[in-house]
Amino acid sequence: MAQMSPWLRSARLPMLGAMLPAIALIAALVYFTAWAVTYSFTNLELTGFNSINWKWIGFDNYIRLFTRNGFLGSLWVTVVFTFFSALVGQSVFGFALAASMRRIQGWGRTTVEVTIMLGWLLPDIVAAFLWQATTSTNGFLNTLIVEPLGFPAYNFLASNALAVVIIANIWKGTAWSYLLFSAALDSISREILEAARVDGATGLQRIWLVTLPIIRPHIATNMLFITIWTFTYFPLIYALTGGGPGSATEVLSIFMYHQSFGVGKLGYGAAISVAMVIIVGALSIFYLRQLKEPK
């Protein structure tokens, strides 16, 4: 308190007022998290006897995450989906686009940027319809490419549903990585790159040894955001495949939705969401550490 600046001291009341929204937000976050954690130890259900007369069942819900089919399989699908669509697809593709677009100006750049942004701006449900229309047996891919080449029509959503969903999400989410990396690359001063060139560094070496280390915090920020989004992503996948066929694209968010509202086991659903929070939290801490400047 002794260190408080005179300005702050005189404005204590307005400061408290300004903090109210933040306090309300934190309270709401704590409330909902506490709700999920509390109910994950109960057999609360959406309807029926257990919706009113729920009991504490200890760690049963958490034990079932590992002893019953579903959670581990969905976790694996989610990891594959997140790794390939966000970390590999959106990041690498977004960076490559941002790097290659730097020399291009004018209408060429505008066209590419608008195209990328379209995927981002299109509502998920519309995007799901487009991808379904594109990849179905009588969709564009088949009628325009596969069949003219003499191959029989191929149902992409039947045997390669996860791949289709991953590609659709790369298409949808690359804009964010592109924008972030574009801004990051703009912040690198030309002199440093020129100096590297004069010292004889090749193109790849300049990217690997100069550019990437400089934008390292941006990479970590980008990873942090897209991991959180992608790990808990729901609408496009649900609208496109409903988690199927079978459980081929049943990511954790869809698994939780089925268990909570299809089966009606809110307690189990809460345990699934707590597990998701723990996983995403651990990943976030990892990325936040990467944000620190290397020693």
């Binding site: 379904q132 039947a158 066929p245």
Partner: peptide
């Protein structure tokens, strides 16, 4: 039957 009919 293709399983995907029940999902897509």
């Amino acid at each position: 039957g293709d399983p995907s009919v029940n999902y897509t």
